[in-house]
Design a protein around this nucleic acid. Structure first.
Lengths: 351, 351
DNA sequence: TTGAAAGCGCTAACAA
DNA sequence: TTGTTAGCGCTTTCAA
């Protein structure tokens, strides 16, 4: 309410009996000013309640001390932890974090306009757009790999290998993958990893979908899963797995007894549902943190932009949604698995 | 990477054959420039890829077109939707949203330094600090009421009344309230509402706690709940309710058969757990949205800061964690309820 | 309606 | 080590 104009370096300078530039230096590069004056200046500044104006500073330096985190859906539990990790790392580095939910490209524009650098954690934005953005500001992408753009990913391949091994150990011979958003790099990666792991471990796999990466999407997938019997399904993410489990139940199929379900991400709700979800845990917090750290390093002048993506560990967390295959329940042979009415999207691989 | 200095109004002015000030006007106050020139300027600007620099603009105007949302824990599912609503409203109003997680006051400082206004959605910050902040910039608080500070709250009293009525209808005569953070305004409000509703409807209530407003906190509360038998408990929030339910189960008490549990907020996970949680649904998204809208209105010069908090509807969502009281199980009399070993914190009310 | 010019608060040469 | 002096890109009187 008391609209007293905030004190500036000029006020401090006058009160401390030095030149404004000295005050500026005292704050922007301590060490370039004698200990004594520095101390006095800080003292006076404190008394006056001076705070450096980030905008005024941004103008001559071109550095805003802000980074932007662009996500596709804040509501997605996957995001929350990411955001937290990012926010922590940003604060630690003295940066303020902008959060943008990118439905269209406009938020990205705004982010580009005011942030020094950007962390992109959304599959909603096309590779081309990302590349364009990367041409203007340092960009770090999460869970996608793009030539020339530093990226942080979690080890989907490893998680998938563990999952397949786990399922195989439980006696499963076929696995259905419920695909998420088609444009998502992670989806492609998970699909390929499954095929690969399947081949290595003698497990047949097929894919259904794509469906939206939501509880609702998972529920919709259930219809197709029911139509094309399987003993184990791996969903693109936990949200879908949850939707799938519930919908399956309403179709009379009990997880894990009738069918085993595995998710991806290990979101908060994964261990709360019944049965608790077996899932590939992504180091969500670490992912966000690492991305921001990486970005700050680049902003700080680190030119060692190794072309290789940073791979963070992911590994299977076994809970209650997977169980030994029931020999007698679903009379599933290799043939019936492969031949069951295929949807237009279906993609079948044989080990 | 092509580090071509971004075009400025000077570049546009030269290319369009007008003065820089005209370009400025064309963007900041269309209407103060002839339709023809305006069109030409926009044209040229588009070609050059000009974007107004928010920092340069912020300097003379003092307006940054950014608002800050300060929350206590991004990871809390309660926040996610809030953030989304806020972010949507901000974008809609042409504002960029800063997100700060306030563990200490430093993030608040940063927010104050760069945002035009602030939405405070955390109980971690003291009333005094909020008041100080409100003295410097427009502030809107969420779920707390502070003299002179515009606030948005959800109708806890109504939700509580419904809850008590629901419980009473199920035959419960005593209710235990598991308290959350002591400094939280919402906690006090819920406690008072319960006492009030209890008095009105002839239900005895007592309080245990406070405990942290987390799953872990809820689990810890279970110990006390077990020690001091009760047939129904209302938890400060869903997270605690969830922790409570699970911990109760490990103590051999089944919800809702042995004890009914009600939460607050209706977070995403509430309907996923087993049993699905009966809870007072807060309009999370709307809360965030409304807070930001309100803030933008104030920033826009709305002086009608009605002293009254804006109250958004909250109401009970009945799911599976509440059930009819089993007459025979817990032989709970009014005396034993009131006299059971009280913790130092306990506060007992009699209708 | 448009242009000229003076800042907004800070940083960064360059001098002293 | 410190002061002087230009700007950074934009807005905003004030004149024209």
């Amino acid at each position: 309410m008391a609209e007293n104009r905030a004190p500036t370096i000029y006020d401090v300078a006058r009160a401390a009996g030095v030149a404004p530039s000295t005050v500026s230096r005292a704050f922007s590069r301590p060490g370039r000013v004698s200990a004594g004056t520095a101390e006095r200046i800080r003292e006076v500044a404190r008394e006056l309640g001076y705070r450096t104006n980030p905008f005024a500073r941004a103008l001559p330096t071109g550095r805003t001390a802000m980074i932007a985190l662009v996500v596709s859906d804040v509501t997605n539990p996957f995001c929350s932890e990411l955001v937290q990790g990012a926010q922590a790392a940003a604060g630690e580095g003295g940066y303020t974090m902008l959060l943008a939910e990118a439905r269209e490209s406009e938020p990205l524009e705004r982010a580009l306009a005011s942030a020094d650098g950007i962390v992109l954690a959304t599959s909603r934005i096309s590779d081309e757009t990302v590349l364009t953005a990367a041409g203007q500001r340092p960009v770090v992408v999460l869970n996608r790999v793009l030539p020339g753009v530093p990226s942080i990913i979690s080890d989907n391949a490893r998680g998938m290998r563990q999952t397949v091994a786990h399922l195989a150990a439980l006696g499963h011979e076929h696995v259905t993958y419920v695909a998420g958003p088609e444009r998502s790099w992670a989806d492609g990666m998970r699909r390929r990893s499954l095929r690969q792991a399947g081949t290595e471990q003698g497990i047949q796999s097929r894919r259904v979908g794509p469906y939206p990466a939501t509880v609702e999407g998972g529920a919709r997938a259930a219809v197709e899963v029911v139509r094309r019997p399987t003993t184990a399904v791996i969903a693109y993410n936990d949200l879908m797995a949850i939707g799938l489990i519930r919908a399956l139940a309403s179709h009379g199929l009990q997880v894990p007894w009738d069918v085993s379900v595995v998710g991806f991400d290990n979101i908060f709700a994964a261990e709360l549902i019944t049965p608790p979800l077996t899932t590939v845990a992504a180091p969500l917090h670490l992912l966000g943190e690492t991305a921001v750290r990486h970005l700050l390093a680049i902003l700080g002048g680190a030119r060692a932009e190794s072309a290789e993506p940073v791979v963070l560990p992911a590994s299977l967390v076994v809970r209650g949604s997977t169980a030994r295959r029931r020999r007698n329940s679903t009379a599933l042979t290799s043939e019936s698995f492969l031949l069951s009415a295929a949807s237009p999207y279906a993609e079948i691989t044989q080990s």
